[in-house]
Design a protein around this nucleic acid. Structure first.
Lengths: 338, 338
DNA sequence: CTGAAAGCGCTTACAG
DNA sequence: CTGAAAGCGCTTACAG
């Protein structure tokens, strides 16, 4: 097969190998490998090899390289909770961070057919250098399996015992939000929780409960049936219909809080005068002028940075990290709770 | 190194090879390979191999397999426009579709250091079976390079000449939206465009312009400085301040439309009585009760399905697809334009 | 610093 | 249907 100009298409397209570079440079394949690897070649040889490589458009074949037990440069991202808008942001930041660290992301979502265990198998099939688990339910049994792997596994945004990683300090966030509401004079503070008793939910709730207990205030709670605008709307509606209507809502996340805001408008309640609303996650929408939602920001950049540091630290002889690095959330005060 | 129970850790952890399975099953490595490959083995042999595989927990090494010129099962997703919330949805749907097709996604975002060309190189380094380009600017020069690759390249959501793929029929969407507004009695219809003259923007605009020309109506236009809520807010504010205030806004996308809605509220304009607002993309927020935004839905599931069909069709002997498969958008009428 | 050789785990003609 | 052998493109002791 030949292109119109007569040059063989195969040579145009198919990959150049180290042997071809070696032939052209008049050195051995080993020298080419070293030149692109540990760099232990003489200056003279290096020049010749680089010239040949550039002329031929050589790039080492990562697949072949990783067969020899080298790193693949792959980081697997095991995703769950795709419906959560906060996941979008985290995912994008991780993707950019991984690319900037000159690694590639193998992204494996949880689907009907594939749970965490099968996603892990798939990741291992590609000999990834590290696995990052984001969201989803992880049973103790699975944690044990993950710990036993050769490949380092990190969790992002959760605090499962025995598995290293990085997370927002959710309990502290709950505590900070609770204290802030108390200090601003609120006395009937309700937690709008979500149905799923995730790790993050439990911890935020515990933090708030502690703040309220310190202040000698009661703990009210209402469940949002799903993790959504409408769930928040409905939960807030039930709270606002009560005779002991709360004067502040601390919502598990911003989406629920935005729904609660909408409910307040329906009840013609003034925010924050009649009722304060506080969210969690500080998603981009929170800062939209239409909302001005006060929220707790998980400091994603810091979390992502520390995670990448852990990944870069792999195989540096240090023992596997089994600790979760907690990042302090930040209270962002806008209009809905001041 | 040994675990506490005395079993060698290496045998616990490091991967089982086909040779080990072969030894245990009393067959050759070739037989094992065939059993997991084309399947040309006798029933008897298959059983023995499968039993051994399960006992040992064997999984073929994808890296080694793909070195022989096999498919890697990898699909590269080259992402740009990460700030667009529509991208989030598309990305998630693609990730799930790829996983359900039992393939893996290598996701490479555009970053400061990496443009489309370098992302492509990285994808090729991993011998991906196909490359999907999402968003971003693609020069003619780059298109030529992409076409010349051995690896099939598809575009998603755009209609670049000479590159196969799938996209929403943006021009038709513009036309449908325009006709709908005209038929509902609007006479001063403004297009709120975005600064970047992307392919999608040009086509939506052209469709609207055609609808207005058919109706003998003027074409008004206002630019949103960025592709955001605030950009939409500001652009709509300028439009509402005009003496010939428009009675309908057709916005390039939903985020801009939501900003325009906020501006209408500031001007105490009733929606849709005083001014209709129509978006594009039908992002999840559009359906939130707070907004009830009418919009054009790009039928993502259909787009993703067709793209996956193209990917599955690779190497089936058919010539490379150079056509863009256009998917009809759907008008979703909610409260802001009826 | 350099090259010949062995090997990573698999697949695939080839011969039987 | 089956196995011995060669090969995919690279890396890495090893000897010089």
């Amino acid at each position: 097969m030949r292109a119109r100009d007569g040059t063989p298409v195969s040579s145009m397209k198919s990959r150049v190998t180290a042997q071809q570079v070696a032939d052209m440079a008049g050195v051995s394949r080993s020298a080419v490998s070293r030149c692109f690897g540990d760099g232990l070649v003489s200056e003279e040889t290096r020049k010749r090899i680089m010239a040949a490589s550039e002329a031929l458009g050589y790039r080492p074949n990562v697949i072949a390289r990783s067969l020899t037990g080298q790193n693949t440069g792959l980081v697997a991202l095991l995703l769950a909770e795709l419906e959560n808008p906060h996941t979008d942001l985290v995912l994008k930041k991780l993707l950019v961070a991984i690319a900037e660290a000159d690694r590639r992301a193998l992204v494996i979502p949880e689907t009907r057919q594939h749970d965490l265990t099968s996603s892990t198998m798939h990741a291992l099939d590609y000999q990834v250098d590290a696995i990052v688990v984001m969201g989803g339910t992880v049973s103790d049994h699975v944690v044990d399996r993950l710990r036993a792997l050769d490949t380092p596994v990190f969790q992002f945004g959760r605090q499962i015992e025995g598995l290293g990683g990085v997370a927002c300090d959710n309990r502290l966030g709950g505590l900070m939000g609770g204290r802030f509401l108390v200090q601003s004079g609120r006395r009937r503070i309700a937690y709008v929780t979500k149905t799923a008793q995730t790790d993050a939910n439990r911890r935020r709730r515990a933090g708030l409960a502690a703040a309220l207990e310190d202040a000698g205030l009661p703990f009210m709670e209402e469940e949002s049936e799903d993790n959504s605008f409408e769930g928040g709307y409905n939960a807030a509606t039930r709270l606002f219909a009560r005779s002991d209507r709360p004067d502040a809502l601390f919502c598990f996340n911003d989406i629920i809080a935005l729904g609660a805001l909408q409910a307040a408008a329906t009840f013609r309640l003034r925010v924050p005068e009649d009722v304060a609303v506080l969210g969690f996650d500080d998603i981009p929408m929170a800062s939209w002028p239409a909302f001005g939602l006060s929220s707790l920001r998980p400091n994603l950049d810091s979390q992502v940075g520390r995670l990448m540091a852990m990944i870069e630290g792999i195989g540096k002889g240090s023992p596997p990290n089994r600790e979760v690095d907690l990042v302090l959330p930040e209270l962002v005060v806008r209009r809905t709770a001041v």
